[in-house]
Amino acid sequence: MRNLISINELSKTYTGGFQALKDINLNIRDGEILALLGPNGAGKTTLISIICGIITPSAGSVYVDGYNIIKDFRITRSKIGLVPQELTTDSFESIWNTVTFSRGLFGKPSNPAHIEKVLKELSLWDKKDNKVMELSGGMKRRLLIAKALSHEPKILFLDEPTAGVDVKLRQDMWQLVGDLRKSGVTIILTTHYIEEAEEIADRVGVINKGEIVVVEEKTELMRKLGKKQLTLELFKKLEAIPKHLSPFNLELAREGSQLIYTYDTQAERTGITTLLGELHDASIKFKDLSTTQSSLEDIFVALVKDEQ
């Protein structure tokens, strides 16, 4: 898959001296969904604001579809749609007018059929003549998406798209993102909801303190950094782990009634068979066992913690 956006050595230092981005290098592939994860203030919004033209970079370059975002800003910006984090809308305008305005602003001739299609897809058609101020928070979020899609962009940036929305709307949003990807739109979303990235992203980038910590295929990331745990429910409580089991780095939990073994999924041998054999020899019996895999959230927390 070819790279649609290339970010090279990108840095941003604000007037006050705060360095929001430090030498960011990142390639975003055509047609993918990339989730940028990071705690508040990590630099996610600064990064997408630079690509969209809202913030001027201090150093480095960004290319969109081979075009420089500063020199060829007309071409790059016309390919991008942005849904901002804040619900910033023209309260006194009608839904139809504000979406039509967005299309014109991005240099596209009037196309009522397209606006109608977008509004219908986002369940806003019935409200097209209402003023923006009459919409609920969730509807305003959908309106911002409609505005961003009004000029048929090739790339869509969603900055915290599900912040403060209910479960139903969040699922609708994920459905919409999936549909857009199918139609060939490349999607970059920033979020701090791990389950969002886990659910819909192809790749995950973790950004912390202005630096990219890791960018990896979601499944690969989970495979590489994910750990599995085997939990054994013991018949009899143990006061301490027998010395000959120390190479397994076992953990005693729930007042000695649970034995936890953490192992690497990528290792050639997980050591489970040997452990079970050793337990049998030591007459340590168990009534149940279960395995769990670390979620993207665990990986994210570990990565950010390591950085700190």
Binding site: G53, R74, S78, L82, P84, E86, T88, S102
Partner: peptide, 14 residues
């Protein structure tokens, strides 16, 4: 004031 200037700044306009 409302923040909608983001649209103007991200649009292909000089």
């Amino acid at each position: 004031f409302t923040g909608t200037i983001y649209e103007l700044l991200s649009a292909p306009v000089s």
